[in-house]
C-alpha cells in the first residue's frame, strides 16, 4: 500500500459526504496536501480533534487517485484552543492560514511551514498583539514567496533611505525621484514599523503608536492583495481590538 508520512499544519477543512472532511495541510516535506479524513465528523472519531485547523500533526497518508487519505495522525502542537479563546487571535490565525493556502498553491517549501507554525505558536502563547503578528507573518510569507518588500532603500534604484513614498506595484518605498505623481506618503514611524515587522524587531513594533499600527496594517493588506491578485476574505473580518 503506497503511503507516506510527514509533519503538517492543518490550514482548513471542508465537509465531505456524511461524516468525512477534506483536510488541507501545509507539510514540512511534501508542500500542500489535500487529503480525505474519513469519519472525523463523528463524535467517536479517533483523530478528528487532531485534524482541526491550526493543529500541527505527524500524519500518515495513503496515496489516493485524486486525494490522499489520512490513515493516522498524532498531534505535535495544539494551538487551536488557545487561539479561539481570543477572537482577534482567531481572526488573525484565519488570515494566516488563508494566506498560507494561497501562497502554497505553486510553491510550498520548508520555510513556509516553519514560518506558519512559528506564527501560530506565537499567537497561541499571546507573545505579541494578534494584529502585529499577522502583519509580520504576511510580510515574511510574501518575502519567502519572492515578493520581499523594501522599507528602507528605494525599491527601484536601491538608493539608501529613509523614503516615505510607498508604491505597492514597485515593491515598497521609493525615492522621490522615481515616485509616481500622487504616490501615497507614509509617516516615517509607519515605515520604521513595517521594517521592524519584516525583520522581527518586536521591541520596536510593540512600542509603535496606534496610528502607525493602523497605517502599517493597511499597507500590508494592500501589498498582500496586490501579490495574491485578490484579497484575503479573512482580512475583512480581522478584529484589531486590543485583547
Amino acid at each position: 500500500m503506497p503511503t507516506y508520512r510527514d509533519e503538517a499544519v492543518v490550514l482548513r477543512t471542508h465537509k465531505l459526504g456524511e461524516a468525512d472532511r477534506i483536510v488541507t495541510m501545509l507539510s514540512r516535506q511534501h508542500g500542500k496536501i489535500r487529503a480525505v479524513a474519513k469519519g472525523v465528523r463523528r463524535t467517536g472519531s479517533r483523530f478528528g480533534a487532531r485534524l482541526e485547523p491550526f493543529m500541527v500533526v505527524d500524519a500518515q497518508f495513503y496515496i489516493g487517485r485524486s486525494l490522499d487519505i489520512v490513515q493516522q495522525a498524532e498531534s505535535l502542537g495544539s494551538y487551536g484552543a488557545d487561539i479561539v479563546a481570543d477572537y482577534p487571535s482567531f481572526t488573525a490565525a484565519n488570515a494566516m492560514v488563508e494566506a498560507a493556502d494561497r501562497l502554497s498553491d505553486h510553491d510550498a517549501g520548508l520555510q513556509h511551514y516553519l514560518l506558519l507554525v512559528g506564527a501560530l505558536r506565537s499567537l497561541a502563547k499571546g507573545e505579541h498583539s494578534p494584529g502585529l503578528t499577522l502583519d509580520s507573518y504576511l510580510l515574511r510569507a510574501l518575502s519567502i514567496a519572492g515578493w520581499a518588500p523594501s522599507f528602507i532603500d528605494c525599491a527601484v534604484t536601491g538608493a539608501p533611505g529613509p523614503h516615505t513614498a510607498f508604491v505597492v506595484q514597485l515593491g515598497g518605498v521609493v525615492a522621490d525621484g522615481v515616485a509616481p505623481h500622487g504616490a501615497p506618503r507614509l509617516d516615517p514611524g509607519t515605515v520604521r514599523l513595517l521594517a521592524s515587522l519584516l525583520a522581527g524587531e518586536w521591541e520596536f513594533a510593540e512600542s509603535a503608536d496606534d496610528r502607525s499600527k493602523a497605517q502599517a496594517s493597511g499597507v500590508v493588506a494592500a501589498y498582500t492583495q496586490f501579490h495574491l491578485e485578490r484579497g484575503l476574505r479573512s482580512l475583512e473580518h480581522q478584529d484589531r481590538t486590543i485583547a
Binding site: 492560514v97 476574505r233 479573512s234 480581522q238
Partner: peptide, 9 residues
Amino acid sequence: ALSPIDGIG
C-alpha cells in the same frame, strides 16, 4: 458558525 476564512463574521 464564525469562520472568517469562509467570509462568515
